[in-house]
């Protein structure tokens, strides 16, 4: 048979293509095998824990809330919110613990201090016990505290304190992972230079606005509200009658509160002050003990008074 159109050479060509494909499959399988050898030293979730929480538990929580639907993880996911791969390395466990329960607002320095002082897991994990050392170890936390203004774009999620710990464990794992130099580090180390590149006109004005915001309100109720915000109180306490991690503040002042001991107590200045300074002294019926940090080292007498005044105003 003559072969004018070359069609009789087709079967041979097709066979060679199949052989090439088989060869590629072998390359792919060998490369894949090497990728997951233990000897590579890549960290695995079983190696990482935070307090009593394992990284894998946190991965369950991460998937359950579909965090990847807004954020990215190792660069994959949606692009509305930051990549979380190295978030733990940047901001550290205390910032995360202060942020996650009330993600709608930015944690203040006070809220981070609360975590460092009262949460043994965090102090142990971070390896520091004061805010200056913490900022040195996690410069991202300092940047976030200094630049905080307004609300975040993240909705509040109904995370339990257990889930918060688990998520921190998971983010600790992803931070520890070797991602071959991704995301690339900036070669402009000076934050102010980067900010002036990002906001050529606005940066000076924005810095001024931050300063102005720091001025304290004079009205005690307003000051109390500011302090409650800064110290992360609203992560657990609602200002209406909604039941959150802690009892709600709406119409609390002057009411009769039932305790776990069975007795009742009037919510007056003394009771509220004690509950802020030594929260485990009296626990409201239906709530857990040991959840709220003691604020005796964090707030001055006047500040506590202002917060009580603010609660009084919520009738």
């Amino acid at each position: 048979m003559s072969c004018p159109d070359g069609s009789c050479k087709e079967p041979g060509k097709r066979q060679r293509a199949l052989i090439a494909f088989g060869l590629m499959m072998i390359i792919f399988i060998v490369l894949s095998g090497f990728s997951f050898l233990n000897s590579r030293g890549q960290v695995v979730p079983g190696d990482i824990s935070f307090g009593s929480h394992m990284a894998d538990e946190g991965k369950h929580v991460f998937q359950a809330y579909n965090c990847m639907g807004c954020h990215t993880m190792v660069g994959n996911g949606a692009y509305l919110a930051p990549d979380l791969t190295k978030e733990y390395k940047a901001a550290g466990p205390a910032w995360l613990a202060a942020f996650l329960p009330s993600a709608g607002t930015w944690p203040t320095e006070a809220a981070i201090k609360v975590q460092l002082l009262n949460n043994d897991d965090i102090a142990e994990d971070a390896g520091v016990d004061n805010i200056e050392d913490y900022y040195k170890k996690y410069p991202g936390a300092k940047e976030r505290v200094q630049r905080r203004v307004g609300t975040t774009l993240m909705p509040n999620l109904p995370l339990s304190s257990e889930e918060v710990g688990q998520l921190i464990a998971y983010l600790k794992y992803t931070s520890a992972m070797n991602t071959e130099g991704w995301p690339p580090e900036t070669k402009i180390p000076d934050l102010n230079k980067r900010l002036s590149l990002a906001h050529p006109v606005a940066s000076a004005a924005a810095a001024g606005a931050n300063q102005a915001q720091a001025a304290e309100p004079v009205d005690p109720i307003e000051l109390g509200h500011q302090l409650a915000t800064d110290n992360g109180c609203f992560a657990c306490h609602a200002t209406d009658n909604k039941k959150m991690t802690g009892p709600s503040w709406g119409k609390l002042y002057g009411s009769q509160v039932k305790l776990t001991t069975g007795s009742t107590v009037a919510a007056d200045d003394a009771y509220l002050t004690e509950s802020i300074l030594q929260p485990n002294a009296k626990i409201v019926d239906g709530y857990q003990t040991g959840l709220m940090p003691a604020y005796d080292k964090l707030l001055s007498k006047d500040e506590v008074k202002a917060i009580v005044e603010y609660i009084h105003s919520l009738e």
């Binding site: 090439a20 190792v74 660069g75 071959e180």
Partner: peptide, 24 residues
């Protein structure tokens, strides 16, 4: 055939930064 010859190993472009080795 061309799709498979390029796409089989082309999948490796998803394996750059996910914690897999640099050779990808």
């Amino acid at each position: 055939t061309l799709v498979w010859l390029s796409g089989l190993l082309g999948n490796a472009h998803h394996y750059f930064w996910i914690g897999t080795p640099e050779f990808w």
